[in-house]
């Protein structure tokens, strides 16, 4: 299973490295989202500083939806879905590999966005341990849930519109918990650790769901 996961993740990341869709489209999109938020909040620095954590995670979430869509769009071309099924790869391995590749891309994106809120919203990033730990957990949860719903919506003509509808309500707890941890940490408040539990539970539940369900979902549509 893990050998297959490494193989698939390596393949997906290589595709991304060669095509640069993430770097040239998704990342600029996410940064534009940050700028747009500043417009709607009248570029009010106090307000932006307070809202930085939440806006940051909304931007990550939007970019995450795009990344998941891209991850399955590249399997939709030229009979590749059949190719994956014929490959003999363990479905659980495919799931873990694709989720890992999505998580990897999101992690890079989050670094840039963190720089973005520091510059644009003058958020002072401290409490790095908490920020990074919560970001890692949230990213794993987002990638796992995204990959599960990515395959659910894959192969349907309306994938682009259906995926956000399915995914956004599901990942609401991640959005909430991650932005709370960041908000509390950025404002040096107490109680961030409680929210970590939600991130852990979410990540575990959706990793397990993906490992179990990916096989049946990959089958004939």
């Amino acid at each position: 299973m893990f050998r297959d996961a490494v193989l698939v993740a390596g393949k997906d990341l290589k595709v991304e490295y060669r095509s640069r869709v993430g770097a040239q489209q998704v990342l600029p999109f996410a940064l534009v989202v940050l700028v747009i938020f500043a417009f709607t909040l009248d570029a009010n620095h106090d307000l932006l500083q307070t809202a930085a954590a939440g806006l940051y995670w909304v931007a990550v979430l939007f970019a995450g939806v795009l990344t998941v869509q891209r991850s399955f769009a590249l399997e939709a071309a030229d009979g590749l879905r059949d190719g994956l099924r014929l490959s003999g790869l363990d479905p659980a391995g495919i799931f873990l590999g694709k989720a890992a590749a999505v998580a990897g891309q999101l992690a890079v994106l989050e670094l840039f966005l963190a720089g973005g809120i520091a510059v644009l919203y003058s958020a002072s990033l401290h409490g790095i341990v908490l920020l990074v730990l919560s970001a890692v957990l949230a990213t794993v949860g987002l990638a796992a849930a995204g990959t599960v719903y990515g395959i659910v919506a894959a192969g349907l003509g309306v994938r682009e519109t259906l995926l956000p509808l399915l995914l956004l309500p599901v990942v609401a707890p991640v959005l909430l918990a991650a932005s709370k941890v960041w908000e509390i940490t950025l404002q040096s408040g107490p109680g961030a650790w409680g929210w970590m539990r939600i991130l852990v539970i979410f990540a575990v539940v959706y990793l397990a769901a993906g490992v179990l369900a990916f096989g049946p979902l990959l089958e004939e549509s």
């Binding site: 393949k11 290589k14 595709v15 060669r18 095509s19 590249l74 071309a77 030229d78 009979g79 590749l80 059949d82 190719g83 099924r85 014929l86 490959s87 003999g88």
Partner: peptide
């Protein structure tokens, strides 16, 4: 059976970017 058969079809199952 899938790992043991080889299929060559209309689709070539190639990743364009690789």
């Amino acid at each position: 059976v899938r790992r043991r058969v080889g299929m060559l079809g209309h689709a070539t199952q190639l990743y364009d970017d690789l």
